[in-house]
């Protein structure tokens, strides 16, 4: 189902933020957030600049998805995590290259460019940033 999700322009217009991890920094309250937006979610200021967010961080919490949305069927099980980047900005992303029984809170992770969604076998592939554990 969900043919409306299969919109090329919808994913296309976000490509910059999804490929390069570009967030916003509020010039008034100094908060950073992902993704970029024109107004600060904390203080409401409209004085926001784009910022390249750090590519490393720490896993704050995670879950293992066993019953996914239909667009992610046959990819299960996979891990979705809440990551705190080195500058404190947080992001929700998949944790990849790790077994479901190996993932732990607090592990150090780094950004990698991977496939997320496919708009069917003949549709476009949506790419974005995932995180993988940093190996020692």
């Amino acid at each position: 189902m969900n043919t409306f999700i299969n919109s090329v322009p919808r994913s296309w217009r976000e490509r910059k933020y999804k490929y390069r991890l570009i967030g916003g920094i509020c010039k008034k309250c100094n908060a950073t957030f992902y993704p970029y937006r024109g107004s600060c979610p904390y203080c409401g200021s409209d004085d926001i600049e784009e910022v390249n967010l750090p590519k490393k961080g720490r896993l704050i919490s995670y879950t293992i998805i066993y019953s996914p949305p239909s667009e992610f069927r046959l990819k299960q099980p996979y891990i979705v995590g809440l990551i705190e980047l080195e500058d404190g900005t947080r992001i929700i992303a998949q944790i990849t290259d790790v077994d479901v029984n190996e993932v732990k809170d607090g592990i150090e992770v780094e950004a990698v460019f991977r496939r997320y969604r496919e708009q069917g076998a003949d549709g476009i592939i949506e790419y974005g940033i995932k995180f993988r554990p940093i190996s020692d």
């Binding site: 993704p35 879950t63 997320y116 974005g128």
Partner: peptide, 19 residues
């Protein structure tokens, strides 16, 4: 664009809170 895109289910988001 930035949460459903990751493949998280709604249950998954609450699981993040839970853990």
């Amino acid at each position: 664009e930035y949460v459903a895109f990751t493949g998280s289910s709604f249950v998954g988001l609450n699981a993040l809170i839970y853990r």
